[in-house]
Amino acid sequence: MTRKYIDCREIPSDSHCTVAIAADSDDELLEAAVQHASAVHGHEDTPEFRSQLRQAFKQGTPPVEAPQAA
């Protein structure tokens, strides 16, 4: 099983969020990412939003240094 992550630092935003979340399973990562995005960023938990989050998953662990924003 390969560790995966999602990193808010890669997404331009007014809040300049620095949270990165990693997990060993896609389902666990998705649930944590949805909770964060809903609670902190006000996103609505919809099937479409979950699909967008899954597409942003990357292999490995988040880098220490902030990645370049897209």
Rank of each mutant, 00 (worst) to 15 (best):
M1T: 15
M1Q: 15
T2A: 14
T2G: 11
R3S: 12
R3K: 08
R3F: 04
K4P: 09
Y5H: 10
I6G: 06
I6L: 05
D7P: 12
R9E: 02
R9L: 01
R9S: 04
R9C: 02
E10G: 09
I11N: 11
I11F: 02
I11P: 08
I11M: 02
I11V: 10
P12I: 01
P12S: 00
S13P: 13
S13G: 14
S13T: 08
D14E: 12
S15Y: 12
S15I: 11
H16D: 07
H16Y: 07
C17L: 01
C17Y: 00
C17E: 00
T18C: 01
T18D: 05
V19Q: 15
V19L: 10
V19S: 09
A20C: 01
A20R: 11
A20P: 07
I21V: 03
A22H: 15
A22C: 14
A23E: 14
A23H: 14
D24N: 13
D24V: 02
S25E: 06
S25N: 10
D26G: 02
D26Y: 03
D27M: 05
E28A: 11
L29D: 00
L29N: 02
E31W: 01
E31L: 06
A32C: 11
A33Q: 14
A33S: 15
V34R: 00
V34K: 00
Q35V: 08
H36T: 03
A37M: 10
A37C: 12
A37L: 11
S38L: 06
S38C: 13
A39T: 12
A39L: 13
V40L: 08
V40S: 10
V40Y: 12
H41F: 01
G42E: 05
G42Q: 06
H43T: 04
H43A: 00
H43R: 04
E44Y: 08
E44I: 12
E44F: 06
E44M: 11
D45K: 09
D45Y: 07
D45S: 13
P47C: 01
P47I: 01
E48Y: 07
F49C: 00
S51R: 07
S51C: 03
Q52G: 08
L53I: 10
L53F: 05
L53Y: 12
L53Q: 10
R54D: 06
R54Y: 03
Q55F: 01
Q55A: 04
Q55T: 03
Q55D: 13
Q55V: 00
A56L: 07
F57M: 03
F57N: 01
Q59Y: 01
Q59K: 09
Q59P: 00
G60I: 02
G60S: 04
T61I: 02
P62C: 06
P62F: 03
P62V: 04
P63T: 05
P63Q: 10
V64T: 04
V64Q: 08
V64S: 15
E65T: 13
E65A: 15
A66V: 03
A66R: 04
P67D: 08
P67Y: 04
P67Q: 06
Q68S: 15
Q68N: 15
Q68V: 14
Q68T: 15
A69S: 06
A69K: 08
A70I: 12
